[in-house]
Design a protein around this nucleic acid. Sequence first.
DNA 1: ACAAAACATGATAACTGGTTCATGTATCAA
DNA 2: TTGATACATGAACCAGTTATCATGTTTTGT
Lengths: 224, 224
Amino acid sequence: MNQLSCFVQSCNEAEGGDSAVSSTKPVADATPKTARGRRTRQNILDAAEKEFGERGFHEAAINRITESAGVAMGTFYVHFESKESIFRALVSHMGQLTRRWIAERVADAPDRLTAERLGLEAFIEFVRQHRDLYRIVNESQFVAPDAYHEYYSEFAKSYQRRLREAAAKGEISQGDDEQRAWSLIGISVFLGMRYGVWDDSRPASEVAKGAADFIEFGLKPEAR
Amino acid sequence: MNQLSCFVQSCNEAEGGDSAVSSTKPVADATPKTARGRRTRQNILDAAEKEFGERGFHEAAINRITESAGVAMGTFYVHFESKESIFRALVSHMGQLTRRWIAERVADAPDRLTAERLGLEAFIEFVRQHRDLYRIVNESQFVAPDAYHEYYSEFAKSYQRRLREAAAKGEISQGDDEQRAWSLIGISVFLGMRYGVWDDSRPASEVAKGAADFIEFGLKPEAR
DNA sequence: ACAAAACATGATAACTGGTTCATGTATCAA
DNA sequence: TTGATACATGAACCAGTTATCATGTTTTGT
């Protein structure tokens, strides 16, 4: 049920900025050294995902997380510096998970336009499978604005690059790729919300098909 | 500086659903009966807008709101039922303010495609002028999900209608107007965030122009 | 086997901030 | 003027939190 396996390697960058300060104090937020530690850390992470996803950052309670993880309060702070810190770890992990999932599903698309459709379909499916995590990312806008900013900037950057390449190959028109990247992200996010989170009755492929048509031809009449 | 004049008439719908229960207790959240009351209420509202906008819902403090409004803590609860209640009032007001602003700027567009461009330009300008209020709407997703849902559903509904009319007139192509409406909203919101909130160095008209091109022609090469 | 390091505990300190309420004061209708 | 209603006050209440720390237990390397 929980998709947070293979988390361990991805959590150090959270506090990465000023980590040159290697204090002699216990370094929370770092990968544990023993198997027991890793197990515990993972349990806390899983519990946190559930708690944050269900209640949101502010309503979420550390004591509920630790209880649900089957450890004592203090243990939380052995592994994480603070409530915000574990939240950031979750957000950062989400970015990777999402990108990886979409990348896989898009890998063998013959061209950019097909990739757009498959990518959107994959995204909607992903959202449906991870409503909680989707919420976490959205809420990071207020809890950890820089994490949120980075999350989408990362997306936009690679998006932009692929658009540029596709334009060079003539697969798509020329245009302002930065703007187009953000537009496409906006489309995904809102369709993901509308047809992924709020109402999952329409097949993802159908939504993706309709959107792909809009993305390809725009609103111009008689364009095809 | 503050755009919350003409607020009074719009705040009753917040608790409107089950208001048949006309208790004998002081009805907070209703329009005050005397001039003094209206003045005070407005002061609180203005202060709340600033406070919520700057700090976000959870960091915002009632005592700072009342202090900034020049009234005592208790006075807040004479006029509003709770912290969440005033927040909802603000969100609902934002919807009207935004729609009105855009509607004005789009009123005399000759066709739908032009309206799209002008509307986006107006929206970006609006966001730049009202960063605080924009933030309030976004955060409502977590504080008052139903208010958020209604906010965008309202937008989508009227958007959809206009697309349908435009398609009937042949100004734009046929398509799934619900999906297209949500896509267009997504574009606006993300461009608004990227070029309105995060970076306002590019002229709104330029952003709108680029986006309008994408909206009109899509990514298809050689379409024009 | 033994010390050192890593990990775990959980009661509680220390605090925050929304909401209440008993008690006023202003306003208005008659 | 007077009674009733509307509005205002702000100290105190209170529930709920995060984070700490002194003390244990497990694991690891030698």
